[in-house]
């Protein structure tokens, strides 16, 4: 039961990183791939209907941690206090920026909020999880830089996949440029991760391969496959991190010590089994409804 709930939480975090990864990337890139306000709106509309739902993956991951592993939840967020405060500040200005952008007189403030509010969590989540695995400023910095570059690449590929016209062409260039930064960082970060634990080796190396493939695919304009590859790269990275964390979710804490009692976990399992299929179905449906490439607003 404990293993199952660890798997659920790893799944929720992974879903969050894959989904909001491209939200963050699009948020950061929108002012740069969009030459004017119309093109910028075109970019942001690719994530418009879905970003809030994607963010609920985080809320659910954290809620599930609280319920299933209270000591892990409280230990993680109290020991990374200031980075988490900055993540929250980022999510605040970003959410408000996205929702208000079309309704204010001067969207420049909202753009700033969206860019900074996307960059902060994209960097800090990497820094927090790297800091969880290794002590010191350098690993945290590297981890942050890696997830930041990864979000940019993922977002650029998503934009190339979901738009048409000039934005699509610029997004491809952005994907190649961020790929050139993300790949070397991936090699360093993922080989460190691979060397830390036997269990993490295979997914970490596979993640590296997926990211390399993604850049090659976007070069050949295979946007759908490139997006699949960046998504796989992020998911495999997350899997490697959680496989490593399974041994010690926090320094000096085991999963069994952190876990709730079997009764709670059983109840949560039933609730999850009943609700999660619906959630996945209607979220998938949203993506289906908005599957058409976003054109320039008229």
């Amino acid at each position: 039961m404990i293993d199952l709930w660890f798997l659920v939480i790893a799944f929720l975090w992974t879903g969050y990183f894959v989904l909001e990864g491209f939200d963050f990337g699009v948020g950061m890139l929108a002012p740069f791939v969009g030459g004017d306000d119309d093109e910028q709106r075109q970019s942001l509309q690719t994530i418009g209907p879905v970003w809030d739902g994607n963010e609920v993956w985080l809320i659910t991951a954290v809620g599930a941690m609280f319920a299933a592993f209270p000591a892990w939840y409280s230990g993680l967020f109290s020991s990374f206090y200031l980075p988490v405060v900055l993540v929250l500040a980022g999510l605040i200005v970003r959410g408000v920026g996205l929702e208000w952008r079309g309704k204010v007189a001067n969207p420049a403030w909202c753009d700033l909020g969206i860019v900074v509010g996307s960059a902060l969590p994209a960097f800090l989540w990497g820094a927090v999880f790297a800091g969880l695995l290794l002590d010191g400023a350098l690993p945290a910095l590297l981890g942050g830089a890696f997830t930041l570059a990864l979000s940019l690449l993922h977002g650029a590929v998503f934009l190339a996949l979901r738009t048409e016209g000039r934005v699509r062409r610029r997004a491809r260039v952005a994907a190649l440029a961020t790929g050139a930064v993300a790949l070397p960082l991936a090699v360093v970060a993922l080989s460190t991760l691979a060397s830390m634990s036997g269990a993490a080796t295979v997914p970490a190396l596979a993640a590296m391969a997926a990211l390399a493939a993604a850049v090659a695919l976007i070069w050949r304009r295979r946007e759908g496959w490139a997006f699949t590859a960046t998504a796989a790269g992020i998911a495999l990275t997350s899997a490697a991190v959680f496989l490593r964390l399974k041994q010690a979710p926090l320094p000096g804490l085991t999963l069994a010590e952190a876990a709730s009692a079997p009764y709670t976990l059983t109840m949560l399992t039933w609730i999850g089994l009943i609700t999660l299929p619906f959630v996945l179905a209607y979220q998938a449906w949203t993506y289906w409804v908005f599957r058409k490439r976003v054109a320039l607003p008229r």
Partner: peptide, 13 residues
């Protein structure tokens, strides 16, 4: 967490 976390997780889900 054992008690209080459950309604929070349910709220999200």
């Amino acid at each position: 967490g054992d008690v209080f976390g459950a309604p929070l997780a349910m709220e999200a889900l």
